[in-house]
Design a protein around this nucleic acid. Structure first.
Length: 489
RNA sequence: CGGGGCAUGGCGCAGUCCGGUUAGCGCACCUGGUUUGGGACCAGGGGGUCGCAGGUUCGAAUCCUGCUGCCCCGACCA
């Protein structure tokens, strides 16, 4: 897989930024901390959206849309929630501009001050629960399982393309249930959906787990997460699913009449993944020649490049290509025939490698003579000559093989860079090299001290944690199992 | 918000220390020709308020003052 990818933070960042720009995915906007997603980047995001949306529907969810603005008072209804988000909110205070004295520009009209400021949503729990209050009266209205595709704004101090921008696109699910067990089940189910998507579509292996109290979502009782390893061996939180208990129901007074005729607060969940997944996709698989996209998410799965000298040759090639591409398309494979005469074949090869197109078919005079084509795969760069009649079968097999091979490579990489530490000395050394499983005494203080001294955080308490008695690497106090430590984005 | 760096054509940079012709190079772009199985070559051409605002000077990309924006590292976070 990747060759010569820089591992120093600084160099890796530069490499990543350059790749995102060169591949035509996104660029920094003039607007502070925001990003412009370019057509090719958005096409990949759309593939992700499509797959996720289908998975949400298959698990009984419906889409809806709620307001961008949240009255300030809503946010203060849930104490932990407001504390968690207060420091990163964009606030609308006025509703009008006017030309300034010098007539050269515009200024905020001080007479147009809002009575109650509006917050640009950093997440929608509050507006949504405010609606749910009116939607839910009886157990017959439950469960309520809704998803929203939207943009949110968080005024982060430091931004990075896709990974942390001031405005980002995401999906947020918000559900309400009659019982605690059902809500927990929903939380875990959606974590499973995310893990399934990230592993089977994005070809990125993840570790499912529960966050420690200090890393929990503001307002949640429990936060579940999936954590993935990037090629610089750092961890990236790829998705979260929260069990909200009755916190928001109580804050927004959402009650229902149970079968037994009692009035009870509903139980809630929320879960989300964002355009950060684009960052994960890029950082997990790319090499020095550009992106490596798993076939299931590649906007173009097969590109066909003609090699010709004369119009006559091009015509012959086009004839063959037309047959080929209609066969491929009939099998649900997305094909692009790049017959532009403005670029040479070599240029096109490099361009589609940069964009991560999984398979490339080249057809030239030599092939016309032999009744063959040349098929190259992006991940390994292997080239094979294939008889015309076998192209469809070959491509189908290749795309499937690449999807699993890309995943297996990422999994092997993670395994190679995952360790167990039994002493703090050992831990400090290993945590620079990747994921480290170690014993922890379960206290906030220990977690915080380790973070201060090593920059590593507890990514999660793995769901498949095996019971194993041990001693906390920091305090020496007893521990019942290892937790996952890593440096993270 | 702290620490470091940067701002010169669409992109990447040189020139700034030590002020002085017409601000230069690579890539990209346009025209013509030759090319086309891994980012072609030759010839010609277009494109710049040197981040912004003041100041010093006969003269400022270059010196001084103030401002703004961006990038990287940290704190915060998906």
């Amino acid at each position: 897989m990747a060759k010569a990818i820089p591992t120093r933070d600084e160099d890796y960042s530069l490499w990543y930024n350059e790749l995102v720009k060169k591949a035509g995915l996104a660029e920094n906007s003039q607007v502070r901390g925001c990003m412009v997603i370019k057509p090719y980047g958005f096409a990949i995001w759309e593939k992700m959206q499509q797959a996720l949306d289908q998975m949400f529907k298959d698990t009984g969810h419906e889409n809806a849309y709620f307001p961008l603005f949240i009255p300030k008072s809503f946010l203060s209804k849930e104490a932990d929630h407001v504390e968690g988000f207060a420091k990163e909110c964009a606030v609308v205070t006025h509703y009008r501009l006017k030309t300034d004295e010098s007539k050269k520009g515009v200024v905020v009209d001080p007479d147009a001050k809002l009575e109650e400021e509006l917050i640009v949503r950093p997440t929608s729990e509050t507006v949504i629960w405010d609606s749910y209050k009116n939607w839910i009266q009886s157990y017959r209205d439950l469960p309520l399982k809704i998803n929203q595709w939207a943009n949110v704004v968080r005024w982060e101090l430091r931004t990075r393309l896709f990974l942390r921008t001031a405005e980002f696109l995401w999906q947020e699910g918000h559900t309400a249930h009659a019982t605690k067990d059902e809500a927990i089940e929903e939380t875990e189910q959606m974590l499973g959906v995310y893990a399934d998507f990230v592993e089977n579509f994005m070809a990125v292996p993840v570790i499912k787990g529960v966050k420690t109290p200090s890393e929990r979502f503001a307002g949640a009782v429990d936060t579940y997460c999936i954590e993935a390893m990037m090629q610089d061996r750092k961890a990236l939180q790829a998705g979260t699913s929260h069990f909200l208990g009755q916190n928001f129901a109580k804050a927004f007074n959402v009650k229902f009449a149970s079968k037994e005729g009692k009035e009870e607060f509903v139980w809630g969940t929320s879960w989300g993944v964002s355009t950060r997944l684009m960052g994960a996709l890029i950082m997990a698989h790319s090499d020095d020649d550009g992106l490596v996209l798993p076939p299931k998410l590649a906007p173009i799965q097969v590109v066909i490049v003609p090699i010709y000298k004369t119009d006559e040759e091009l015509n012959k090639i086009t004839e063959v290509v037309n047959g080929l591409s209609s066969d491929l398309k009939a099998s649900g494979i997305s094909v692009k025939f790049d017959n532009r005469d403005t670029h040479k074949p070599g240029w096109k090869f490099a361009e589609y490698e940069l964009k991560g197109v999984p398979a490339r078919i080249a057809i030239g005079p030599r092939d016309l003579e032999n009744g063959t084509v040349e098929i190259a795969r992006r991940d390994t760069k292997e080239k094979t000559t294939v008889e015309l009649g076998n192209v469809l079968g070959h491509i189908k097999g290749l795309l499937e093989e690449m999807q699993t091979s890309i995943y297996n490579n990422a999994l092997a990489f993670r395994k190679e860079n995952t360790y167990e530490a039994d002493s703090y000395e050992e831990f400090k050394e290993l945590v620079d090299k990747g994921f480290v499983y170690a014993h922890w005494d379960g206290t906030d203080e220990t977690e915080e001290k380790i973070k201060e001294e090593t920059k590593a955080t507890i990514r999660c308490i793995p769901l498949d944690q095996k019971k194993e008695d041990g001693k906390c690497i920091f305090s020496g106090k007893p521990s019942a199992g290892r937790v996952l430590f890593a440096k993270a984005y």
